[in-house]
Each structure stands twice: as structure tokens, then as C-alpha cells.
Design a protein around this nucleic acid. Sequence first.
DNA 1: CTGTTAGCGCGTTCAA
DNA 2: TTGAACGCGCTAACAG
Lengths: 334, 334
Amino acid sequence: MGSNITIDDVAKALGISKTTVSRAISGRGRVSEKTKKRVLEYIKEVDYVPNAMAKGLAQRRNFNICVTLPGDYNAMELSFFHSILVGISDYLADKEYDILIAKVTENDISGLKRIVNNKKVDGVILTRTVIDGEAIKFLKTIDMPYLAIGSCPYDDVVQIDSMNYEGALELTSILLSKNFKKISLVCGNMLHYVTSDRLNGFKDAFKQANMKFDSSLLYADVVSESGIDKAVEDALRNGTDCIVCMDDYICTRVLRKLKTEKKKVPRDVKVASFYGSPILEFNVPAITCLEYPEDEIGMLAARTMLEMLEGEEEVPLKQRVGYNVVLKESTKIV
Amino acid sequence: MGSNITIDDVAKALGISKTTVSRAISGRGRVSEKTKKRVLEYIKEVDYVPNAMAKGLAQRRNFNICVTLPGDYNAMELSFFHSILVGISDYLADKEYDILIAKVTENDISGLKRIVNNKKVDGVILTRTVIDGEAIKFLKTIDMPYLAIGSCPYDDVVQIDSMNYEGALELTSILLSKNFKKISLVCGNMLHYVTSDRLNGFKDAFKQANMKFDSSLLYADVVSESGIDKAVEDALRNGTDCIVCMDDYICTRVLRKLKTEKKKVPRDVKVASFYGSPILEFNVPAITCLEYPEDEIGMLAARTMLEMLEGEEEVPLKQRVGYNVVLKESTKIV
DNA sequence: CTGTTAGCGCGTTCAA
DNA sequence: TTGAACGCGCTAACAG
């Protein structure tokens, strides 16, 4: 394994030129079936593996894709990122591509810059935490294919998005059909596109049901822990019977607050989340939520990236993946 | 940014040879301060960045380190892996190295093999989930520096380990000093080195306190969810006053079971974990546990790897990082 | 202190 | 169908 023989050695051993060997391996160019077979058998026998760097230098690419690693994160996003990474990895490995990691924070993209400027990758996949930041601005100024996973403020950027609007709409509709009368919604940062997407779905569910949403039960821009606590207090005071959370992070805090307030879920109040994660599954009771197929998202991102690099056609500017509504105990009518 | 000029262009523009430019940049070899300054200023002006692949080809290395990504995981390990990754990334980025990801599962290391055989990396860092498996066996057969993060069954492998024994010893001692009389311990896979390390610390704490451990309260090889449930039931039946969990995964399940059994923590029974993670922090009440500085572990692993690659001296075969005992509400005497 | 020459290992013209 | 020669961009050995 990991032998140190070169294409030259192979050529000499077989008494042919390296050109022929190269062609036999790559499949490009015409080689007789006989010699091709001879080459393929020999390289397997001696376990010859082409040197990726030399190949890259000659072809001016390196078969590496950069994936950004969120440097500042909350525990909830981890499973999202990990699943995405696994999806991307699975797809790329098949095609003999590899993943290079670039840690990126909101105000530090030096790692990404270095990797890109050093030409260590053929393309960049941006994960959702950074798509609003400096990263895209930087990539826009240079000649390097890239795409974004998640909602993205630019409409000239290739992106893989989730059906956040539709998911929120459907889940909310289901809750309304259960006859909850005072549904409240706790939102995080309203500047995030994903937030407004889900909020729109939420509101439209009311419209479709010909009901009106009591806007005093909408808690926007609730980012701090204490903010969430206050929102929950207020909602309870207003007699909410169902608290919907924008994401799993908020949901965890809401559950915590309900516990200290001695409110039982689902007996005293129902709870649902527009984004589910393993951390919510472990909760007792399990939480009704929307689930997104993260590995599929990763795969799709990887496939799209390779199409950008190798495909002849334009790739669609925006692709969207579905969701599942997962009904659990937290919204059960007791 | 990301200009496409080469070292040749720089040399010509400055009327000197590329060798001199190369030397001015790398710092290797003697160059007059004057020309060095001239070069450095010029490359900054035109934003020249050396092509990493060409450099790699010439130097027979590529300034990439492979980090294995656990393909099969439980949600708990995620924060561990992520923190490690951030630590490694931070250290390596400083030294102009990058991280290549290889997804590895217990019985599939083909991705790792490809990356290594293609010579896409200079070294490999194994993360804990795979250190018992095929990966090490493979790496032992070839000529590629590698190290393992976590306890490792081989004593000829460079490893970065945590002070699992000492941590378990100290935490258990503290619990004993609180006069809990019937401490039970729920363990996972006993084949894992980390498990036996912690178990030894646990037992030795009893010895040091001149107390004897009731072995009927030791639940070994509890791997399934139902197994954990049974262990908790049995422990409660035996009148346990404190349940110690081998890790955060087990702890989550134990807490869940206690909840369905209507046992309040810490009122009815105390709970502690030999491994803490964000998921336990969010619990109400917060759980007493051991915390390990994961980013430091990552940094240390990265530093050690670079020493293996560039250092002149041998690196220590085994380095160990400390821990913190975090006392929370779950073991408070009410 | 600097330049010349020769590779690193592979792909790719262009002839044959 | 094959091969010789050159180039990818850089570093290293050897002169000067």
C-alpha cells in the first residue's frame, strides 16, 4: 500500500510510454484494449496510485472542496453541521474528491481566504452560519465556484435551501386544526432569512384557516436567554395554549422556562418547534417539530458543486429540499 | 485577490531570478535585506500567493493533515468532535496547514485509504471513535505519521489522552465525602479503554476512603436504551441515593428514565456524569460532571502532529490533558 | 548574496 | 494506437 512508484516506473516496467499509462488509467484518449488491460492489471498488482498533487498541478485543479466550519455555534447546530458534512463527504468520496475544512466566524474569514488564495480547493461550500457574512462578499470578488447551504440574501448565488416556508405553514395548519386558540411564536434574530421564511409560513397558515393571529403573541428578535424567559412569562400570562419555537435552540430554553414555571407539557401547554434536532428527541416529552433530511442536503450540495465544476450545463440557482412533520407527545391533547 | 500570477512573473517584474523570490518568501537561504524587502512589498502589492500544489510537489508534502470524521456517532459525541476540530483548525491555520476530512466507520476506512494513498496529506489525526478499528491497523502498515486522540489499545502509537482515571477518582471522592451511601455506576461498553480507566478511578476512590463498593450497584456493558432503563430500575430498587453515569449519553437516558419513574433530581436521587457536554448543561437541574478542555486537546494534537512532521526530537508517546470537576445542582443535598 | 539548472509526477499537445 | 517533448509552479543543488 501507499507505494512510492511513479507513472514512470510503471511505464518502464511495461516497456511503454507514460503517456499510454496515463491514458489507460484516465480513460481519455485511445488505447488498445490489450495494453489497457495490461496496465490496469499491473498497477493493481504493484498498488500504484497516481500522486494527487502532480495530477493537480498538471490539470490545474486538486479535487478538493472547501467546506466552511462554523467557528461560533450553539450546541443545537452541531448535528446539522455534522450531518451535512457526512452527506457531502459521502458524495464527494465516490467521485474521488475530498473535503478541506475552513473555520469561519462572522468577522474572521482569514482561513477561508488562505485556502482559496493558495488554490488548495476547486470550489467552496458555505454552510448556513456564514452565508450572511464576509465570506460571500469575498468569494464574489474572485474566480472560484461556490454555493451556499441555507437561505441566502443574494439572488445571484447558487443555493441549497430547505422548504422552511412550506414546513412552517403545514405544521402551523396542523396545530390550528387541533383547535388551539392562543398559539404564540417565539422568534430569534429577525434578520435571518430563515426566520422570516418560517414566520411567513406561520402567518399564512392562519390566513388559509381564515383565522387571525393575535400579534401580541408574536415574540420577535428574542435572542437572549432572559428574553426567552420573558417571552414565555408573557405568553403564559396571556393564556397561551401552545408555544411554537422558531428553532431547537429557542425550544430548549422555552422548555427549561416552562419547567421552572411548573408548567407541564403537554398538559398545561403544548410546544412545537420549527426545527428539530436530536437534542429535542431526548426530551421528555418528545417535541413535535419539523425535520429536515440533512444528509440529503449535504449530498445535493456536493452534487451541485461537482456539476458546477465539471458539468456542461448551468446549475439551477436555487434548489430546495423537503421536510417531515413529526408529531410527538408535546402537542398531544390530553 | 487570488491573482493568477506566478513566481516567474514576480521574478521578471523585479528583474531577479525566481530562486531569489522563493528565498525571500520562505526565509530559507540568504537574501539581502534590501531585495527581500523589495520582493515582499511587491508581492503584497500585486497580491501574489504561491501555488500550494506546486510547492507541495517540489517539497514532497502538501501541508494538509487528515482528521477522521466519525461516520457513526451518537448525538453526544458531536460537541466533542466539533470542539476538537476547532482546536486543530486553529492551531494548524497558524502554521499554514489545512484539514482534510476522512469519514471513517468501524468497518469502512476506504476514504482514509484513498486520501493517504493519493498522498493528499502529510499526516493523520485519528479521533477517538475509530482508534480501535481498522484505521490504525492500516496506518501501521504504511509510512505515514499519525496519532490518536483518546485512549488507545496500542502502546506504540502516539496518543493524546484525557485524565479519565484521575477525573473519575476525584469526582467519586467528592461524592463519597458527601456521605452518599449507595452510589451506583452505569457503564457502557467495557471494552472501551476509556470505560475501564474511569471505572478504576471510581473503585480507587472507594479504596482511598476506606469504603467498600457494593458491586451489585455496578451495571456493566449497559449499551441499549432498555438496558439503561433496567439498570435504573434495579438501582432504585436497591435504594441507590446517587447514580453515576459513565458518559453523557448514558446520563441522558438515565435522566429520562428517572423522569418516567417520577423520581426528582436531586431530591430523590443524585446524578453525576463522568463526561459532561452541552446537552447536559441544558438539563434542569444542571448535572454534576467532569469537563475536559476539548479545544486544548485539539490544539495539542495538532501541535504534536507538526512536531512529528517538522520537529527534530521524538514526540512523547503519550500526553494527557486535565479536567475540571463541575459541581451542579444534580448532586446538591436538599 | 544571487542565478542557472534540474527535477517533483503527471497531463497534454503534436508527430509518427 | 503510441511516444517524445514540453509545461504546470515551485524548490533545491550547485555554481559563481
